[in-house]
Structures are given as structure tokens and as C-alpha cells.
């Protein structure tokens, strides 16, 4: 991918999406810790405070439950808050508001209420942040009816999906990756909006489908390149949304390749990969030439030590090895 004028970092693309949506719709406003003058810990809201002022770019106390609750109330009253939770691990402090309130209010009210709330946050390991700042928790939220869960892998998708999330009438967990903020890529200058729940084939192939999202897409692409050098053509799919997830795209790819490897940074047990494997199993194994394999983080808290941390997480070599073994055992 060559760098051009339209290339933006992930952080810049997200910033563009926020700015454009705030310009488009006066009901959109931001809340979060250090997002105002400071511009956000990862710089995503940089410049927005200067442009829109303290009412629409609202710094909050360290009070996740309180300000997510406040965002829910504002959303119920017709506003479209975008809240930043600095680290997804901190969302655990506000689980009542997210799971018991935001996710259920539309249903409990018999459809009277809409909660157009976006919770922007970031997840992922690989930065030596230790057990309480490294988790990938998208599966946990995807288990709750009423929440949508999105996790983009590149700037173009990040911008287009964030715009879609802001225009959604349901609460959306918009999960960024802490190691992708500096990742640069092309962004369309147009007002592109990608509907939630549509996967993207980021590399076509015929021998095996490798399914992932967020940062792991890049690991999968790296693995696919290595596999190609060995004569194995992997199709890499970026799921982009966990809830809803694009069953048709996954089924279509597996029909073609007959083999599926699911890669996620979330822990293996009860991770979203299990849901996808189970759904494909329920649909019948007709097209599968091999068992489904998963490459996920070990079921342990993320250790601080960098070598231990790397060993817990998926890496491109593990993906390569898994695919090689699968093709060896089920040719």
C-alpha cells in the first residue's frame, strides 16, 4: 500500500469521522476523560475542543458509571452522545449502565426509547500494559442483546464505521485497538458510511479462510503472505462487526475454501470464534473439508513481562503453523 495524500492514521481517521458527524448533526456531542483540551490520551479528539467548545466536547470526572449513565439519559432525550472510555477495561466499572440500562431500555420500554449512544474505547495487548489494561472484551459485549459491537482494522473502515455507529439508533461499542492508532492507510474523502454487520474480504484466496478483526487482521495478512510463499492461498476476512456478524460472508468464503481458521486476541474460551464455529456447525459441515481451528489468546490474564505477553497472544507464525497443520492433516 503506497502512502498518498489521502492517507490518514487511524487516530486521524477517527478524528475526521467525529468532526464530520458533529458538523453534520448538532445533536452529536462527546464526553470522556481528558478528551477536551488534552485531546484524548490517544489523540483521537485532538482539535475538537477548540472547534466545538466545552459543551460539545465535554471533559468528565473519572466516573465511568456516572457519565455513561448521563450519556444514556441524554440519548433517551434525543441527543447522540459519543462517549470515550479510555481503556475497555474501565468499561467494567460501568457494566450496569451498559448492560442493564443502555442495552435494555429500548426493549423494556416496548420500543418507546431509542438509545443512540456510541461508546468508543480501545482494547488489545502487546504494549506491556499488564492485566488491567490489555484485555480484548468484545465477546463479552456481543453476548448482550441490544448492544452492537464493532472493531475496525484500518483507517478507512474506522472512519466509515464510526460514522455509521453515530447514526445508529442503538448503543454501539466501538472498539479501537491501542496499537493501531498510528497505522496509516487511505481514507475516502467522501462521506462513506459502512453499515454495521458487513464483513470485508481483505485478501482473496482459495485454500483456507482466515477470519479475524481489529489488529489481528494485520497478523492474518502477514501470515497469508508467508503462506503464499509456500503455495497456500489464504482468504483473509475482516469481520469488522461482532454483533451483528456477517454470517453470509463467512459461509460464502468457507464454501469456497472448505477450511476455517478463526483468529482473535480475545481469550479462547467463549470468545466470539466459538460462536462462529458453533453457528457453522449448526448450519452443517457440508462444505468443511477440515475441522475449524482457533488461534486466540490463552485463557490467562495478560502478563506484564513482554515475552510472556507475546506468548499468550496470537502471532503470525502461530497462524501460519495452524494453517500448515490443517492442510497437512486434511489435504
Amino acid at each position: 500500500m503506497s502512502i498518498s495524500d489521502t492517507d490518514r492514521t487511524m487516530a486521524q481517521a477517527l478524528n475526521d469521522a467525529l468532526r464530520e458527524e458533529m458538523e453534520r448533526d448538532p445533536r452529536v456531542f462527546l464526553m470522556g476523560e481528558d478528551i477536551g483540551h488534552y485531546g484524548g490520551v490517544f489523540g483521537v479528539t485532538r482539535g475538537l475542543f477548540a472547534q466545538f467548545g466545552p459543551e460539545r466536547v465535554r471533559d468528565t470526572p473519572i466516573s465511568e458509571s456516572g457519565f455513561i449513565g448521563a450519556a444514556i439519559g441524554a440519548a433517551a432525550a434525543g441527543w447522540r452522545p459519543v462517549v470515550e472510555i479510555m481503556w475497555i477495561d474501565f468499561a467494567m466499572v460501568a457494566m450496569d449502565q451498559i448492560v442493564n440500562q443502555a442495552a435494555k431500555m429500548r426493549y423494556m420500554s416496548g420500543g418507546q426509547l431509542k438509545i443512540p449512544l456510541v461508546i468508543r474505547t480501545q482494547e488489545g495487548a502487546g504494549r506491556g500494559n499488564g492485566a488491567q489494561h490489555s484485555q480484548s472484551l468484545e465477546s463479552m459485549f456481543a453476548q448482550v442483546p441490544g448492544l452492537k459491537v464493532v472493531a475496525p482494522s484500518n483507517p478507512r473502515d474506522a472512519k466509515a464505521l464510526l460514522k455509521a455507529a453515530i447514526r445508529e439508533d442503538s448503543p454501539v461499542l466501538f472498539i479501537e485497538h491501542k496499537l493501531l492508532y498510528g497505522f496509516r492507510g487511505p481514507v475516502l474523502p467522501t462521506d462513506e458510511v459502512v453499515p454495521l454487520g458487513i464483513a470485508s474480504v481483505v485478501r482473496p484466496g482459495s485454500d483456507v479462510t482466515i477470519l479475524s478483526l481489529s489488529r489481528m487482521v494485520h497478523f492474518c495478512l502477514e501470515a497469508a503472505q508467508k503462506l503464499a510463499n509456500m503455495g497456500i492461498e489464504a482468504e483473509v476476512i475482516d469481520l469488522r462487526s461482532v454483533q451483528p456478524w456477517d454470517i453470509d460472508a463467512v459461509a460464502k468464503s468457507v464454501q469456497k475454501t472448505g477450511r476455517l481458521v478463526i483468529v482473535h486476541e480475545a481469550h479462547r474460551s467463549f470468545g466470539w470464534g466459538a460462536e462462529i464455529a458453533a453457528t457453522l456447525a449448526e448450519r452443517g459441515f457440508d462444505h468443511l473439508l477440515a475441522p475449524i481451528r482457533r488461534v486466540c489468546s490463552d485463557d490467562v490474564p495478560f502478563p506484564y513481562n513482554r515475552q510472556l505477553e507475546r506468548a499468550v497472544m496470537p502471532d503470525p507464525q502461530r497462524i501460519v503453523t495452524t494453517v500448515q497443520e490443517l492442510l497437512r492433516d486434511y489435504p
Binding site: 449513565g69 448521563a70 450519556a71 444514556i72 439519559g73 441524554a74 432525550a77 440500562q101
Partner: peptide
Amino acid sequence: PIAVGAALA
């Protein structure tokens, strides 16, 4: 907090 949010609105 939800009422606080409505007041914010």
C-alpha cells in the same frame, strides 16, 4: 445518572 443525562440534554 440517567436523569442527570436527561438534565444535561
